[in-house]
Measured scan of single mutants.
Amino acid sequence: MIIKINGKYYKIKKIEKNPNGKYTITTENGKKYEFKNVKIFSEEELK
């Protein structure tokens, strides 16, 4: 799965839903981001 952050695309390693309704997304390079609204892309959609 792929996520778009600030115009760049990252591969997703893990998605966790937090009790506060936000999502914590861990990218393949180990960085964590927290979002309220998340749009996930499949690799097929990006081709």
Rank of each mutant, 00 (worst) to 15 (best):
T24P: 00
K4H: 11
K47L: 15
K36L: 13
Y33Q: 01
E34K: 08
E28P: 06
N20S: 09
I2Q: 08
L46Y: 08
N37G: 05
I15C: 12
K17F: 09
K39G: 11
E28Y: 14
N6L: 09
K22C: 12
E45H: 02
E34H: 11
I25K: 00
N29D: 15
K8W: 08
E16T: 11
T24L: 14
Y33I: 06
K22S: 11
I40M: 07
E28C: 14
I5Y: 08
I12N: 00
K31Y: 12
N37E: 14
K32H: 07
K22P: 04
K32P: 01
Y10H: 11
S42Q: 14
G7S: 04
I3Y: 03
K17V: 12
S42D: 11
I25T: 00
E16K: 04
I12Y: 02
L46V: 08
E34P: 03
M1C: 08
I40E: 10
L46E: 07
I5G: 01
K11F: 08
N37A: 08
G7I: 02
T24A: 07
G21D: 04
P19Y: 07
N18V: 04
T27E: 01
N18E: 07
Y10A: 06
T24I: 13
E16A: 06
K17G: 04
P19D: 12
Y33A: 02
T27D: 06
I2H: 14
K11E: 05
I15F: 07
I3A: 09
P19A: 13
F41P: 11
E45N: 04
N37C: 15
K8M: 10
N6E: 13
I2N: 04
K4S: 08
F35T: 07
T24V: 14
G21Q: 03
K14C: 13
I25P: 00
S42N: 07
K32E: 09
I12T: 02
K36F: 12
E34F: 12
T27W: 04
K36Q: 11
E34Q: 11
P19H: 09
T27K: 01
E34W: 09
N18D: 09
S42F: 13
K8D: 06
K31F: 09
L46T: 06
K39I: 15
I2C: 12
K31I: 10
K39H: 15
K36I: 10
N37P: 04
E16S: 10
N6V: 04
G7V: 01
F35E: 03
E28Q: 14
N37R: 08
E45M: 03
K47R: 06
K32S: 10
E34M: 10
I12P: 02
Y33G: 02
K13G: 06
T26C: 03
E44L: 04
G30C: 04
E44V: 03
I3F: 05
F41T: 06
E34V: 13
Y33L: 07
I15N: 00
